[in-house]
């Protein structure tokens, strides 16, 4: 098994944390995982992205040129990564910021979640990334919702532990409300 993914959006949307969440679940299950962020000047206001590779075998390259899975949270990232997905890839788009009519690839399965709106309805726009992770779990079948929920205390820093119930709701909303676009 090998899961090669990219997560991308604006800095501040919790993109890197979303990737870390998956990495924590994988690590907890004893799988090999690499999480590799874009770093440096890019973290200040520009686009942020990270690649997460999960496998039961030794992981070679942490760099993913043609991802099989995607989690895309803004338009510039969508424009950047749409052409790069491999044939048959599955990607979840935050339709609050990504216009689904911009989908042109027919050999990639795109799914939509208005993660920003869902998060706002839940009371904290910052959990949009967890809504997206919920969606990605549903689409990929990589991990169960329960496996994600029990990892929240490890994935979130201690000062945010009061937000565990909210994050749990976000995961579950994303998991159930994901819809196919194309």
């Amino acid at each position: 098994m090998i899961f090669e993914s990219v997560m991308a959006g604006f800095g501040g949307q919790g993109i890197l944390s979303a990737g870390m969440m998956l990495a924590h679940i994988a690590s907890h299950k004893g799988l090999n995982v690499t999480w590799f962020p874009s770093y440096g000047a890019e973290q200040r206001g520009g686009t942020a992205n990270c690649t997460v590779v999960i496998s039961d075998l030794e992981i070679g390259s942490p760099i993913v040129t043609a991802p099989a899975y995607g989690l895309i949270m803004n338009m510039p990232s969508f424009n950047k990564f749409q052409p790069r997905f491999r044939k048959g890839a599955k990607a979840v788009l935050d339709t609050t910021l990504v216009d689904p009519s911009a989908v042109t690839r027919t050999d990639v399965e795109f799914y939509g979640l208005s993660a920003g709106d869902i998060a706002r309805d839940l009371g904290n726009v910052k959990v949009a990334n967890m809504v997206m992770i919920g969606g990605l779990l549903a689409v990929s079948g990589l991990f169960t919702l329960d496996e994600a929920v029990i990892e929240l205390p490890n994935a979130l820093s201690k000062k945010h532990h009061d937000l565990i119930p909210l994050n749990e709701q976000a995961l579950s909303k994303g998991f159930s409300e994901i819809k196919k676009i194309n």
Binding site: N32, V33, F36, I63
Partner: peptide
């Protein structure tokens, strides 16, 4: 290199 320094692995 930067990849090794920035990458997270278990």
């Amino acid at each position: 290199d930067g990849a090794l320094g920035q990458m997270a692995e278990p």
